[in-house]
Design a protein around this nucleic acid. Sequence first.
DNA 1: TAGATTGTTAATCGATTAACAATC
DNA 2: TAGATTGTTAATCGATTAACAATC
Lengths: 223, 223
Amino acid sequence: MNGKSENPSDGGRDGPVPKAVVSRLSLYLRELQHLVRDGHETTSSTQLGNVLGFTDAQVRKDLAYFGQFGYPGIGYRCEELIQAIKQILGTNQPWPVAMIGAGNLGRALLRYKGFVQQGFRIVAVFDNDPDKAGQEIEGRAVEPLERLAEVVREQGIRLAILAVPAPAAQEVADMLVEAGIDGLLNFAPVTIALPGTVSTVGVDLAIELEQLAFAVVNRKKSS
Amino acid sequence: MNGKSENPSDGGRDGPVPKAVVSRLSLYLRELQHLVRDGHETTSSTQLGNVLGFTDAQVRKDLAYFGQFGYPGIGYRCEELIQAIKQILGTNQPWPVAMIGAGNLGRALLRYKGFVQQGFRIVAVFDNDPDKAGQEIEGRAVEPLERLAEVVREQGIRLAILAVPAPAAQEVADMLVEAGIDGLLNFAPVTIALPGTVSTVGVDLAIELEQLAFAVVNRKKSS
DNA sequence: TAGATTGTTAATCGATTAACAATC
DNA sequence: TAGATTGTTAATCGATTAACAATC
């Protein structure tokens, strides 16, 4: 896009990139997309920091892990930085995703528009319930779990969203690993044990409310 | 419950409690509840750490922020520690919660059992859509947003879950603050600006998938 | 040129880990 | 008693912030 960025794709520079940096990267991306929608061509570390509640130094430091994206005296060109961050995160290309579990949460997530907007397409849905397998939800046929390995291979699926009841989660996760999945977004309120070759991100909705309750009881401007 | 814990309720000891510590507290609680269900009476920092992927020292240090809950040579009594953590988090008493937005996600969350299990009851649902206001969902009447302040007062609601489209989020958040809410769990993919007296926790589902994609592309046992 | 803003280094701050006396 | 495990201190490690020369 321009000749400036040095290590566009990976965490080039030094050691491994801290997890906290990567999560802020997603926030920068989201904010940049809002800025573009509002007609901004460029932004600055100060502006990004102000909106998101970080210092300007932190914004610059975070981005500097991955290369040089800014222009002294000018700031960052929004579109350019968006592309750079997408490349770093790996979302410059679309990811086909499998949804496991067609209950309340799974169905709601199937209809959620935000995934597609960020480059994730849920291309297959699985459920063990024979009443559900065979049905069609949001234009996708619900498949039985037996078809997992086959569909994962056929469609080149690497990521799965786990939206099954807690007691089933570990067992289904094992099947996903067996089927060759590389990453798991787990909505079940349990810690899943997985081989080191598979990544997990866990989202526990009740825990998020607990964190909020604590913040309220202890009065502070949490984030 | 016993005579040991010194600072049962708040972050007594030194300064403010690090956010990371509080989030691990919720994980300890979740795991302890699983242990009790599996018939364990006691556990240890080593066991908790192993399951959750932390060091034993970290588990002990985290708990030590809030008091002395363990027994040298024995470990922690699960039930006792569960009660202590609930008290710290503020979930030893039930919280009435308002849901704002009765779309896909809002309705799925209304049916989600995990909230009640951890002490959160969604006692009111609001939506601006006149088609929805008046309807009944999961036994709760959907109210128009005009009734917000009134219902919040009547029911003593302090927490709200925001499940409205991104463009409406800030505006609705302002109404919630106006209505006297103390904490906001925000599912809209935007950063909400709020007065320092109100706490927010943001959950962006697309961002969680982005983090997973990054972890997969950069192969490492994320958490 | 003057003003703005970057990338980066050094200084500060905070969080994690290792080690161990005290305890059951 | 011997073995297990805590709470806590000191040492290590990592992350954030402040400051500033370089750049547009």
